[in-house]
């Protein structure tokens, strides 16, 4: 038995990265591609994402951003309290909302908030933040192992995949259970690199292989388009330098100290 799937989250309107990731995946004998949500925000021209997802039959679940845009809510539901974070979050949300077509919004609204299926002998659960809440942040340094084991137990899953935070990680739990944060493809991981990445999950005769695959894309072209749309220079800086500049309040100390700001 051999099965391989690809997973990513956080497209953030980065259609150039999305196309680069799909191209990379297609060379790899992958059965299905999954997107764990947050299609808009941050980048320009949100409508460009929709046809690419449909054309490539990418199975998509709803992120908090998609839930907000689809249901005409006032904000992205990230829950910032810092005034500066809120300023940039609002700017980005208002731009994305204004530039998303009604058809795309209606589609987003109907996306499922989780998916469950079997891969070999593993029961896989895909969600955006956590199985219990779309906008729950599961960071590597603030998520206890026993907590993840409880989630596996409560939701009857062997492998839980999530995204939402923007930084990928994986932890092996007791009894060959796994939690995987699959990462995002819309912006780099706050480590000074410009590439983005996705996760490849492979089951081979009940052996599991989890790999994070970095993908280079034309970030300079993307930055140029952001500037043409008059998106804040702070966002462009992240794309060009690989360092996060806004919405930093949610980062735990150990993740934050690795960044520049």
């Amino acid at each position: 038995m051999h099965k391989k799937i690809a997973l990513f989250g956080g497209v953030y309107s980065n259609y150039i990265a999305l196309e680069a990731v799909i191209k990379d995946v297609k060379n790899k004998n992958v059965e299905d591609i999954y997107c764990l949500g947050d299609l808009g925000a941050f980048g320009p021209h949100p409508n460009k994402i929709f046809p690419i997802l449909l054309k490539n039959k990418i199975k998509t679940i709803q992120g908090n951003y998609d839930n907000s845009i689809g249901n005409n809510l006032d904000d992205c539901q990230c829950g910032y309290t810092d005034p500066r974070d809120n300023y940039f979050a609002k700017l980005s949300y208002d731009y994305t909302y204004k530039n998303t077509s009604e058809k795309f919004k209606a589609w987003m609204k109907e996306l499922p908030s989780f998916l469950k299926f079997e891969l070999g002998n593993y029961k896989v659960l895909l969600c955006h933040g956590s199985p219990r809440k779309t906008n729950e942040f599961l960071w590597e340094t603030t998520t206890p192992t026993h907590f993840l084991e409880k989630l596996c137990n409560d939701y009857d899953a062997d492998i839980i995949c999530a995204t939402h935070t923007g930084i990928h990680w994986h932890r092996e739990l007791n009894n060959d259970k796994h939690f995987i944060n699959v990462g995002v493809i819309g912006r780099p991981e706050n480590d000074g690199n410009t590439f983005v990445g996705y996760t490849e999950l492979e089951i081979n005769d009940d052996k599991i292989n989890i790999q994070y695959i970095p993908v280079e894309y034309d970030y300079k072209k993307f930055a140029e388009e952001m500037r043409k749309e008059k998106l804040p220079e702070e966002f462009v800086e992240t794309i060009i330098t690989g360092w996060w500049t806004t919405c930093l309040e949610v980062l735990p100390g150990k993740e934050r100290i690795k960044g520049k700001y």
Partner: peptide
């Protein structure tokens, strides 16, 4: 809390 790691209901 340090930050509302669980935000508002989605």
């Amino acid at each position: 809390s340090n930050f509302s790691s669980v935000g508002r209901d989605a």
